[in-house]
Amino acid sequence: MIHIDRSMVGLAAATLILAAAGGFVPDWLAFILTLALAKALVVQGVVLQMRAGLVSFGQGLFFCVGGYAVGMGGHFFGINDAPVLLLAGALAAVALAAVLGLLMTRYRDIFFAMLSLALSMILFGVLVKSSELGSTDGFNVHPATFFGLSFKTEAYKTALYLLTVLLAGGGALVLHLVHHSGLGRMWEAIRENEIRVEYLGLSPRWLLYANYLLAAAFAALGGGLTALATGHIDPEMSFWTTSGEFVFIALLGGTSHVAAPMVAAVLFAFVRTYAIEFTPHTWQMILGFVLLGIIVFLPKGLWSLVRSEKRAKA
């Protein structure tokens, strides 16, 4: 049976509180939170891979597939229901990952990172060449319905916010369970010593394959939600700097707890938006110093603040 631990209760509580907050926060804040939590979903996938020792500089590939699935579903196939579109995006990403994973799971370290980057840039190239899809300008996403219900402007944003919060919270719960399952432990074992895992009679390659597929699904969900929230998609989603940002947020939060990506994504969104506002000419520098500061003082990410205090008490 599933053992309910403190983290799970905490996550459920945080999700409920965030969902309830949707009624009070101003629209712009809800929008930033929606985008940040959607991004957090992608980052969950990046962290998932990091726990198995893999760093992807090409997670934008699946992020983009998720986004374009939502956009194209509305434009070309007349599908307008958000959950259906998101599911379609996730399935498309998993299908693509199932093929690419056969190749990718042969690679480790920097080669995994660079090959994943190359693959996402090839998708970028294909999209840039596709004038029917608007090339680099991309196209606008039709407003979606939610389980068949359509909403007007204000309610639409709230509905999307709630959906994002629930998916981000639910996704984190699922990943928490996965991390503490046998599979999750095996991934960590691969990171520590792949050869010993082989000696145990397991196949690291197929274990990583499962990891790759799961991460792709999460990235696509995040991409789909981002597309619905901004109402626009373009090939930039697949550009390597987008993927770099996911890695950035993953390290910002740390890999030790599933709540970390969410906290990091929200914090990142605020730091960036305020840096842009107060120092429009040097916001990248501020971002750089924040990142450097975190690496120097909190090498295990923001979440180590929580962890260290706990340990001190114990």
């Binding site: 770099g244 000419h281 040097t282 916001w283 990248q284 520098m285 750089g288 110093f289 990142l291 690496i295």
Partner: peptide, 9 residues
Amino acid sequence: YALLLILED
């Protein structure tokens, strides 16, 4: 990467 951001600006 952080250095890159700082040096760019």
